[in-house]
């Protein structure tokens, strides 16, 4: 079973929910938590894990071989991203724009643009008691998160079969989020009861509906703000799986990097509700 934890708005509590839900479930089940917010992974701040392994991740980009090139111009014609540009007698490659589609490399009649490896990030596997935790971190200066997210999901799929997988997704609704959410059996949208929370929740709902995903909302800091999020969920028939209360005690524990459910019974109770709902919704998901 794969559960993606996403949100339109940043800072609503995706990571808080991810680490707590993953740790809680790992007390009973085999669970892997994957931090897919590769531009700024932070789930590791809450988990004191033992490092099991670390590996570099690469993408393939073309490299111009001047001596072979006949300046036919096919490479720049087939590039949808203008990552290959012909200037007079020169071919320029822009690695940050390249989407590793290999079109220029494959279609070059004289093999003058062979694909070469470029490092995009590091994947690290940690173990915290029974919980497996995978963190991928994008290399500084690298612009595209999607290739690293994709490789991380593939790594997890091939190494951790028959586990509950929890994806801590990036915020927003753009390509990195789609990549994180598209393989999930269920999406939890974390929101907060504020006008900003509502506005971005609506965008996230549109996105997951477009992807035909089963989903529900979790309202964090419940009790702050107003009732608009609850009213919206009711109107749109979106199940509200849990309401995590707005409490100073929670903020304090969070700021120390503690897991909440171990110290606050209300949070444990809400996690239990989420688990029950999703296990009912995603049949045959737990082995």
């Amino acid at each position: 079973m794969k559960i993606a934890i996403a949100s339109g708005k940043g800072g609503t509590g995706k990571t808080t929910l991810s680490v707590n839900l993953a740790s809680y479930l790992s007390e009973t089940f085999n669970v892997t938590l994957i931090d897919l917010d590769v531009e700024e992974p932070n789930a590791g701040l809450f988990l004191n894990g033992k490092k099991i392994l670390s590996e570099e991740k690469f993408k393939m980009i073309p490299e111009w071989v001047k001596d072979k090139c006949t300046l036919c111009g096919i490479c720049q014609e087939v590039c949808n991203f203008h990552a290959v540009i012909q200037l007079g007698t020169m071919i320029l490659v822009f690695p940050e724009l390249c989407h590793s589609c290999y079109a220029c490399s494959e279609l070059c009649p004289v093999d003058a643009l062979p694909a070469k490896q470029k490092k995009i990030g590091d994947l690290t596997h940690y173990k915290i008691n029974k919980l497996n935790f995978i963190e991928s971190k994008l290399t500084i200066g690298e612009e595209q998160a999607v290739p690293l997210i994709k490789q991380t999901v593939e790594y997890v799929d091939s190494h951790f079969k028959d586990q509950i997988k929890i994806y801590d997704s990036p915020p927003g609704t753009s390509c990195p989020v789609i990549e994180s959410v598209k393989g999930a059996d269920f999406v939890i949208l974390v929101t907060e009861p504020t006008p900003f929370g509502l506005n971005d929740l609506k965008l996230a709902v549109e996105t997951v509906r477009e992807l035909n995903k089963k989903f529900g909302a979790v309202i964090n800091r419940f009790g702050a703000g107003n009732n608009e999020v609850i009213d919206y969920c009711k109107k749109e028939n979106i199940p509200v799986l849990a309401k995590i209360p707005d409490k100073k005690e929670i903020a304090e524990l969070y700021s120390k990097g503690h897991l909440l459910y171990k110290e606050i019974p209300e949070v444990l109770n809400e996690l239990e509700k989420i688990k029950t709902f999703i296990f009912n919704e995603v049949k045959g998901g737990v082995k």
Binding site: F81, H82, A83, I85, Q86, L87, G88, L92, F94, L97
Partner: peptide, 15 residues
């Protein structure tokens, strides 16, 4: 209409 790479493309035109 370009989602990506408008800069290099325009620079090429200018060239």
């Amino acid at each position: 209409k370009e989602a990506h790479g408008a800069g290099p493309k325009t620079a090429q035109k200018l060239f």
